[in-house]
């Protein structure tokens, strides 16, 4: 083998090395992006579905006890999350993914607190707090969470979805004023736009990486 042949082989190997590094790093970034999208799809999808179920149940039974169906969200969401984690475990952790987990743990905790707060107020005052709209508060928290997540992962579609959610939340009181019977469906729409859609966009990054 001549020196020139050896140099040519060495040169190609170096180029291949750089190409391998770039390819692997790109794939890994997308793997991390995919893991961010799945919880959005699960919780956005479950909440939208349960919203539709609750709306139908309230409309056709006119019984407030049907509001207990909202508990399907944590039950179904948790079951699907556990099942998904077993089928598609998360392989990489980054500081960013840990921060996003903590962000949503905080938001989830706030949602639970604000969802049960009216019951506490009712216990204290003896009447249900009529001007407290749980759906408005939860929608606001989720929209802010989605916007922050989008900024953290630098995914513009997620930021836009969060922004759309905030606009929808801003209109919520007006919508409730004119179409009170549809506010549960409106709530479902906010979750569809603010969580499910950005989740699909985040997840499609994985699909494009697999091609």
């Amino acid at each position: 083998m001549t020196t020139k042949d050896k140099d040519t082989l060495t040169e190609m190997t170096r180029e291949e090395s750089l190409a391998l590094i770039a390819q692997v790093m790109k794939k890994t970034q997308k793997e991390v992006g995919k893991s961010t999208g799945v919880p959005f799809i699960i919780w956005g999808g479950v909440t939208t579905f349960v919203s539709i179920v609750v709306w139908f149940a309230l409309m056709y039974t006119n019984n407030r006890i049907m509001n207990l169906l909202w508990l399907l969200i944590p039950v179904l969401g948790s079951l699907i999350s556990v099942w998904t984690k077993r089928r598609h475990p998360v392989h990489c952790s980054t500081e960013l993914s840990r921060l996003i987990s903590r962000l949503w743990l905080t938001i989830g905790s706030c949602v639970m607190v604000f969802a049960f707060a009216p019951m506490l107020y009712a216990q204290i005052t003896g009447t249900w707090p009529m001007h407290y709209n749980i759906l408005f508060v939860i929608s606001l928290l989720l929209s802010v969470g989605t916007t922050i997540t989008g900024i953290m992962v630098k995914e513009n579609m997620t930021v836009v979805s969060g922004g759309i959610g905030l606009v929808l939340v801003l209109v919520f009181p007006l919508f409730t004023y004119y179409f009170a019977s549809l506010q549960v469906l409106y709530f479902g729409c906010i979750f569809f736009a603010t969580m499910f859609v950005p989740g699909v966009f985040l997840n499609r990054i994985k699909a494009s990486a697999d091609v």
Partner: peptide, 22 residues
């Protein structure tokens, strides 16, 4: 080894299954 290091330089940690896949 280069693929392993390229992966690990991008993340805090990665599991064996993912490294095997990549």
């Amino acid at each position: 080894r280069l693929a392993v290091m390229s992966t690990l330089v991008s993340v805090e940690s990665a599991d064996f299954t993912y490294l095997k896949e990549i």
